[in-house]
């Protein structure tokens, strides 16, 4: 059973632009860190693909490495309108996926 990762998404209309913010609860292990107790390497576990769409049109595709911080945060603006359906989905290198959906207010 895959672990649960919380994906939070916010989309807000401001000055004619929609601001999209997202945070995913994810460890983002680089694979270089060692477990302090056992001295064993913690396997790499990070998100490597994020796709954000608005009304099924792709807004942003991001490829990430382990250099992105733990619980990654993402924010950008786009020319949108109230009522747009924003969807964010991600995949990590261990096959986990997550998604969140929000309608622009």
């Amino acid at each position: 059973m895959a672990k649960k990762f919380k994906t939070r998404l916010k989309a807000k209309l401001k000055d004619g632009k929609v601001n999209v913010k997202a945070i995913v609860s994810h460890p983002m292990e680089t694979g270089r860190r060692k477990d302090k107790k056992t001295g064993e390497k913690i396997p790499a576990h990070h998100i490597n693909e994020v796709v954000v769409t608005a009304n099924d049109k792709t807004l942003l595709t991001a490829d990430w490495s382990g250099s992105v911080s733990k619980n990654p945060y993402l924010s950008f603006n786009y020319a949108g309108k109230s009522g747009d359906k924003i969807k964010l989905s991600w995949k990590d290198n261990q096959g986990n996926t997550g998604e969140a959906e929000k309608t622009v207010k």
């Binding site: 049109k57 595709t61 990430w64 382990g66 945060y73 993402l74 950008f76 020319a79």
Partner: peptide, 18 residues
């Protein structure tokens, strides 16, 4: 990271890195 920008998006992204 690499961000591929789609239609209508502002060429500006915020993110956090190690």
């Amino acid at each position: 990271a690499k961000f591929k920008l789609g239609e209508g998006i502002d060429p500006a992204v915020k993110c956090r890195f190690k």
